[in-house]
């Protein structure tokens, strides 16, 4: 489904991705873990084509997206939904208009039909009666939900989650995890999430990949990861100061 082959990416002197290889399974949730600023978000942006690799290939459905032009890329993107870290709801529109946005952009559906889909999607993420509210009036958790409703509005095959639980309280974190699991199952999605929240990683992940120094150092099921003897992974999971990870 999605395959990254020897991807390199630098920002100035900062060599973020250094020959990264990763294959993401269809219909499963893959969680990417790693240090803050270690290239997790950069990896997601490569998958969706917001960034192009300096070297290497990003293959989606057998096509190297790095070589596509804008129009072709747009076609690929219709199969993707993204939930951004801060939800990235448009401030100038109501929640209903936000969720309707991809539908208006990419389908020729009539107004009534769009309104029906919007309320369906909002109900699927546990929100009702918020269509006419502005995003600024919502709480952080509700915004995540609304953001997810927008991400799945077009019924995509793949949904990317950028730090879905960062900045939420433990109860809300659990609720969002629950939501991701349910949505993944109900819509049979391929999900890719980045996180460094230990609870979330093992709750939502079918597969877990650890990025360190711009490469995938460990990849496997939660069980395999938990049992792994990789010193980097062990230190990261235990949150210990002792080990190979350079704290400075």
């Amino acid at each position: 489904m999605i395959k990254l082959v020897d991807v390199h990416k630098s920002f100035g002197d900062n060599h973020v991705l250094r020959g990264l290889n990763l294959e993401i399974d269809k219909g499963k949730t893959t969680v990417i873990i790693g240090r803050s600023g270690g290239g997790k978000s950069v990896l997601l942006k490569h998958i969706i084509g917001l960034l192009k690799p300096d070297k290497g290939q990003v293959i989606v459905d057998g096509v190297d997206v790095a070589g596509l032009n804008d129009r072709e890329m747009n076609e690929v993107r219709k199969n993707f939904g993204v939930l951004f870290q801060g939800s990235a709801l448009f401030d100038s529109m109501t929640v209903g208009e936000n969720v309707a946005f991809p539908l208006r952009e990419h389908t020729k559906k009539k107004d009534r039909e769009i309104r029906k889909i919007v309320s369906e999607r909002l109900r699927a993420v546990g929100l009702t009666g918020v269509e006419e509210i502005m995003p600024s009036e919502l709480s952080g958790g509700m915004r995540k939900r609304a953001g997810l409703a927008r991400a799945i509005a077009l019924h995509p095959q793949v949904v990317l989650f950028d730090e879905p639980t960062t900045g939420l309280d433990p109860v809300m974190t659990e609720a969002v995890n629950e939501l991701i699991i349910n949505t993944q199952r109900d819509f049979n999605l391929t999900c890719v999430a980045t996180s460094h929240d230990m609870q979330s990683i093992f709750t939502i992940g079918h597969k877990i990949a650890m990025i360190y120094e711009g490469e995938v150092v460990a990849y496997g099921t939660p069980e395999e990861i938990r049992k792994s003897e990789n010193p980097v992974l062990k230190q990261f999971l235990s949150g210990s100061l002792e080990g190979p990870i350079n704290i400075l």
């Binding site: 917001l50 993707f80 993204v82 990235a88 952009e105």
Partner: peptide
């Protein structure tokens, strides 16, 4: 600028709205 900081511009790209 605010839309850029809060990733709303990225969101537009992702939803194929230039």
């Amino acid at each position: 600028g605010t839309m850029k900081v809060t990733e709303q511009i990225d969101a537009l790209y992702v939803m194929s709205a230039n």
